[in-house]
Amino acid sequence: MMRIFQGMDLVSVAGFERVWERHEGFTEDIFSPLERAHCMSRKNPAIHFAGRFAAKEAAIKALGLRAGASGFLSGFGDIEVRGQGGGKPVLHFRGWAARMAARRGIVQKTVSITHSGNYAAATVILLAEPGPRQGREPKRQ
């Protein structure tokens, strides 16, 4: 039977903007040049950055990578949200995220991003092939 890993996240756009304004280099640390170019080309970049941030966090949760405070950017730089120009967003993993996805047998991934008012949210669903992995499923939020 295929296995499903899910993650979701909700981000306050105002909260995101506060961190962005306060810390130089924040978006460079978190987002790829492609993501930054896309978000900065939009009328309200903060909404789009916040949506992509939510997508990355949702993917991190789905992969079980929440390493948190010790190594505080773990995962963020390894997950890219592609698919601009009104198209459906697509997740691309590299580095640590790609290695963990391969190890878990992830064969398909989907992401959905939405924003309304002061909030942006995203869900990520990862589909993994059946295999010998019989361990406890990751705890999800």
């Binding site: 306050s12 961190v19 810390h23 405070a69």
Partner: peptide, 16 residues
């Protein structure tokens, strides 16, 4: 009850 954005904010503040 810190969230991921909080972790980032705290770490950046400490760096500064």
């Amino acid at each position: 009850d810190a969230e991921s954005l909080d972790f980032l904010d705290i770490n950046y503040r400490l760096e500064q």
